[in-house]
Nucleic acid binder design. Structure first.
Lengths: 233, 233
DNA sequence: TGCGCCTCAGTGACATTGTCACCAACGACC
DNA sequence: GGTCGTTGGTGACAATGTCACTGAGGCGCA
């Protein structure tokens, strides 16, 4: 689900950004034109807090490039990553969400440099009213988010930590199996304590599944991790 | 699942059901009329599985009476209650949800006898298109559900079990402090094991906060439980 | 009444995970 | 070299989850 190439070429007018969103390419030309004319492209550097407690976004974002990490910050100080928005996906829910309920504890952070299309709330609302195709796109986004959150609750409540860590390692690894992250960051991914991650990684290393160095993890036996995840998940 | 009856208590035209939903009473009269004419009232007995794996609802429900419990069933056999829909609330998300993504493991169960208004998918979509007020209602419902799920993840991941049990006891108790439920059912509320609930309740009883008998829990010291919940949650 | 059968709850042993305090290794910087 | 913050390792302990088993209560029925 990542755009990768094509983004650069997008800067020309041969391929308007609308075409890069599977759900939006089906819109009527008139709707696309409205969307294109009333929106603007924003760029934010890596690490920017896009929304958070006391910082509501006024625009709906459609990500062209980069990823946004959404995480819950507990009042106990612990954190957990809820989900990520990748390029080609939209922030539909977060905005609608935060507009209605101000008492939330989640925040969205640009995990990389991000380029996105900002659609003002008003334009968004008009589009939902005018276009059935756009409605379908929006509801599909909401639906996916909610079912994912259902699965997230299930995972946090019932899944073993070694399986969850294995999942994340596989998801975060690049093609060579390398992951540039710390135990601390991995513990936030899973909503657990750093010590737990350290212990699990040591066990994985003892079994020859991964190798560790400061700030890095490398998967040596992808098959074994997949088997762990598959068998118990 | 047929319309028809329900005339019993709904009687007469003095208060159309639309007025009983805070968000809907603001609709234009024309929108209300459309909603009233194109929907039907259904009644389902307690215990009915309204939706679940392999059983998608074709209608959007607005609850007039009763409650629906939505729970996640893990492939490990364990379960956890995600949320409840009370009278005056709508099922917006579940329907939209299940329409788009068939691979879910959540189910909705009528916890009591339920009377509800069934709005066909098509009518719902038209209303979203026509009425800004209806859109606001729908997005507010989605938003509340999503923020609640954020909090749910937070609670499951970080909150102590005694605090969570205390919360549920306070929420489920009637005015006299009585709760008619088993340890097993309480464990499903929290997504934990029965033994854990038994141990916690014993500790609460030892402290004089609750009294237990077969299939029943009675809160003796509501203040103490509130203090537990308040102080650590 | 006594019997069988089911649900409900209690218990102990153990595994997993979370918490806390502390320490050692590493790298950036002066 | 020396200092400092970050990163990761360790052990003790608490909280929670898992498992196997026990017994108490309720209910139908001969």
């Amino acid at each position: 689900m990542r755009g990768g190439c094509g983004v650069r070429a997008m800067t020309g007018r041969e391929t308007p950004w609308v075409e890069r969103f599977p759900g939006l390419s089906r819109l009527a030309q008139e709707t696309k034109d409205l969307l294109l004319s009333k929106s603007s492209i924003v760029e934010v550097p890596s690490g920017t807090v896009i929304f958070g407690p006391g910082k509501s976004p006024e625009n709906m974002l459609f990500l062209l490039e980069g990823t946004v990490r959404v995480q819950q910050v507990s009042d106990t100080g612990r954190e957990i990553v809820l989900y990520r928005i990748h390029s080609g996906e939209s922030c539909v829910l977060t905005t609608a969400c935060l507009l209605a309920y101000e008492d939330y504890a989640a925040e969205g952070i640009a995990e990389t440099a991000v380029r996105a299309v900002a659609v003002p709330r008003k334009v968004f609302d008009d589009l939902v009213g005018q276009s059935k195709a756009f409605r379908d796109f929006v509801f599909a986004a909401f639906s996916k988010r909610i079912t994912d959150l259902f699965l997230m609750v299930d995972e946090v409540a019932f899944q073993r930590m070694d399986v969850r860590l294995g999942q994340r390692l596989l998801a975060l690894a690049d093609a060579a199996g390398a992951i540039a992250t710390t135990h601390q960051k991995l513990s936030i991914e899973l909503g657990t304590a750093r010590e737990v991650v350290s212990r699990q990684l040591q066990e994985f290393q003892r079994r020859g599944w991964v190798q560790q160095s400061r700030g890095k993890v490398r998967i040596c036996d992808r098959r074994a991790l997949e088997n762990l995840v598959e068998h118990h998940g």
